[in-house]
Amino acid sequence: MIVTLILAAEVAFWILLGLGLATRYLLRLRTLSTVLLAGLPVVDLTLFALTVFDLRGGATAGWTHALAAGYAGFSIGYGPSLVRWADRHFQYRFAGGPKPEGPPKYGPERTRHEWLICRRTVVSAAVTLGLITALVPLSDGAAHFDTFTGWYLRLGMAAGINVIVAGCYSLWPKEAPAGAIVEEGRVVGWTTPRPR
């Protein structure tokens, strides 16, 4: 049952996102768009609530229950940036907006970008692990406890790797190629012929 709910939540997330952006840029109904986009975290939190009810109803705890917690964690950690990304691309494709810029590639701007990604990952992992911890008392035995606690190692490693990557960019910032004119961490031109 949880797998079906996860799939339904995934579909509902993207439908709400598409409807929210279409309502904003094609129908020019900003208030309705805001309400639809505000419903995005509600989808994932509803999925988590249904997971709790499933476990309280006697279901055997499994990795799918932890994955439902992961959806809520991702929604809180990465949801706002995902909506901003989709908004920029939708506006560009359908509403005459400017072409979205990619992430910065060089210098301190790239370092800040890496720490921003790191923060999102750490928040997602922390929220997910907090929700999984809330599910542990609802599981029925040591084997199911292990099913949930295995996520601590995986998510801890994901957050740790992100911290290491961001730290490396702090210690060794990525330098632009010779002859590149860089603005806000992006190459905007060349002082010499572009290298091939």
Score class of each variant (00 low, 15 high):
residue 1 M to W: 04
residue 2 I to Y: 01
residue 3 V to E: 13
residue 4 T to S: 12
residue 4 T to R: 12
residue 7 L to R: 14
residue 7 L to Y: 13
residue 7 L to P: 05
residue 8 A to S: 13
residue 8 A to T: 12
residue 10 E to L: 13
residue 12 A to G: 00
residue 13 F to Y: 08
residue 14 W to Y: 15
residue 18 G to Y: 08
residue 19 L to G: 14
residue 22 A to Q: 02
residue 23 T to R: 11
residue 27 L to N: 00
residue 29 L to H: 15
residue 32 L to Q: 13
residue 32 L to H: 09
residue 33 S to V: 07
residue 34 T to E: 08
residue 35 V to L: 12
residue 36 L to P: 05
residue 37 L to P: 14
residue 40 L to W: 05
residue 46 T to I: 08
residue 46 T to G: 10
residue 49 A to C: 03
residue 52 V to L: 15
residue 52 V to R: 15
residue 54 D to L: 01
residue 58 G to P: 04
residue 59 A to P: 07
residue 61 A to D: 02
residue 62 G to W: 02
residue 63 W to F: 10
residue 71 Y to W: 15
residue 72 A to L: 09
residue 77 G to S: 07
residue 78 Y to K: 06
residue 78 Y to N: 06
residue 80 P to R: 14
residue 83 V to I: 15
residue 84 R to M: 13
residue 98 P to R: 13
residue 98 P to E: 15
residue 100 P to W: 06
residue 100 P to G: 08
residue 101 E to Y: 01
residue 104 P to V: 04
residue 106 Y to F: 15
residue 107 G to W: 09
residue 109 E to M: 03
residue 109 E to I: 00
residue 113 H to K: 05
residue 117 I to E: 00
residue 117 I to G: 00
residue 118 C to L: 00
residue 121 T to W: 01
residue 124 S to E: 07
residue 126 A to F: 02
residue 129 L to W: 02
residue 130 G to F: 13
residue 131 L to E: 02
residue 131 L to W: 05
residue 133 T to I: 11
residue 133 T to E: 11
residue 136 V to M: 09
residue 139 S to C: 11
residue 140 D to W: 04
residue 143 A to E: 13
residue 147 T to S: 09
residue 149 T to H: 07
residue 151 W to Q: 10
residue 153 L to C: 05
residue 155 L to A: 05
residue 158 A to W: 01
residue 164 I to K: 01
residue 164 I to C: 03
residue 169 Y to D: 00
residue 171 L to R: 04
residue 172 W to Y: 11
residue 174 K to V: 09
residue 174 K to F: 00
residue 176 A to M: 11
residue 178 A to W: 01
residue 181 I to P: 03
residue 183 E to H: 10
residue 184 E to F: 04
residue 187 V to A: 03
residue 188 V to L: 08
residue 191 T to A: 02
residue 191 T to L: 08
residue 193 P to M: 11
residue 194 R to T: 10
residue 194 R to F: 02
residue 194 R to L: 05
residue 196 R to E: 12
